[in-house]
Design a protein around this nucleic acid. Structure first.
Length: 352
DNA sequence: AAAACGGGGCA
DNA sequence: TGCCCAGTTTT
């Protein structure tokens, strides 16, 4: 691509020094007080980064406190049974993160010391480019720039980049060189955290607080009078609608649940209300009858918009694979996904 | 009810 | 590269 005299990205790189200084100064005065920033440790960084992978800070806070209290270091996590790990994660969602974190602790255990370079972390479970850069820059001062959704948003606005991106991962890849060029190698961890802090607290998706932005004078949107809300341009996602029929089956003080196999791609080793298919019943047998669902819930998850209908049902005989009877007074001890946990509580209150 | 937010794994 | 993961919060 030929250089244009008004290339805002080149201008930004030329102004890297004042950018870094203004950003770091702002961060050191305005950084939120977060538990993984107090008495920081590699373990706290790793746990918080896993929890923050697809979840916002506010949601993570109570889970992080509970987790650190129960499993205070890598050794405790490596020694913990999987059931405890999943239970501590219950409600956070995307449970492969918990399983990967557990695997990570066990992978680190035999090493004399944890790796210090991002490339080494990349081969560990649950670690991608973002997490590798975050962990090694924060804990070891590695010269690795993070590129998460916050950083993409900031860089697209700073450079007034109106390129339409197919998805967020394409955008992240495109902005990686610019993020690296701007990295403050004297304080990579704080620089990276400052970028994400700026994105999370000021350079917001829809209502950016430009008046208080420490780098607005270096922002191409600001100097050109462009609306930052329009940057970056990301293609809208395709949504697929799905309907699931589930069974509510209580007998002799026990609830019938499906336990997802350990190797399953989703909800591995978690319990859920059995779907019609898992019960060995065609969904049509539920929908075809005049029976009305006990409960109907809608939820959006990844690329799906799912309507969940929960029907009263009889247990099949014999019991199909992966179905288990769980005593009602032991339900709190097992791990369900957040929505399933709420539905079970709601239905137990409604049908005592 | 719909949109926003959001990294890694895997074929 | 393209699809999947099976969630919460905000608007």
């Amino acid at each position: 691509m030929p250089d244009r005299p008004d290339n805002p990205q080149a201008a930004l790189i030329a102004a890297a020094a004042p950018f870094r200084a203004a950003l770091l100064d702002w961060y050191r005065r305005h950084a939120r007080v977060l538990p993984w920033r107090n008495a920081p440790s590699l373990y706290k960084t790793v746990v918080s980064e896993f929890m923050l992978q697809q979840t916002q800070v506010k949601t993570v806070l109570p889970y992080f406190a509970r987790w650190i209290a129960a499993l205070p270091d890598f050794a405790a996590l490596a020694a913990a049974p999987e059931a405890q790990v999943l239970k501590l994660w219950e409600g956070l969602g995307y449970y492969s993160r918990a399983r990967n974190l557990h695997k990570l602790a066990r992978a680190l255990a035999p090493l004399p010391e944890p790796p210090r370079r991002p490339e080494e972390w990349l081969s560990l479970p649950g670690i991608g480019p973002y997490t590798a850069a975050a962990i090694t820059s924060i804990n070891f001062g590695a010269h690795a720039a993070v590129v998460d959704g916050n950083v993409v948003r900031i860089l697209a606005r700073l450079s007034a980049d109106g390129t339409p991106y197919r998805d967020s991962s394409t955008a992240a890849k495109t902005f990686a060189p610019l993020a690296s060029a701007l990295l403050n190698t004297a304080a990579p961890g704080d620089h990276n955290q400052a970028m994400m802090e700026l994105g999370a607290t000021l350079c917001l998706r829809r209502k950016p607080l430009c008046l208080t932005c420490p780098v607005r004078t270096l922002c191409a949107c600001h100097s050109r009078g462009l609306e930052p809300e329009n940057y970056p341009r990301l293609a809208p996602r395709q949504i697929e609608k799905l309907t699931v029929a589930r069974a509510w089956c209580v007998k002799n003080g026990k609830l019938l649940l499906h336990r997802t196999p350990a190797k399953s791609r989703r909800l591995a080793h978690l319990y859920e209300l059995p779907s019609a298919e898992q019960l060995g019943t065609r969904a049509g047998d539920f929908f075809g009858t005049t029976a009305k669902p006990l409960l109907t819930k809608k939820r959006g998850i990844t690329r799906y918009q799912i309507t969940e209908n929960i029907f009263a049902a009889e247990a099949p005989e014999p019991l199909p694979a992966d179905l288990e009877w769980i005593a009602l007074d032991e339900l709190e001890a097992i791990t369900l996904s957040g929505p399933h946990r709420r539905w079970v509580r709601e239905l137990l209150r409604a049908t005592p």
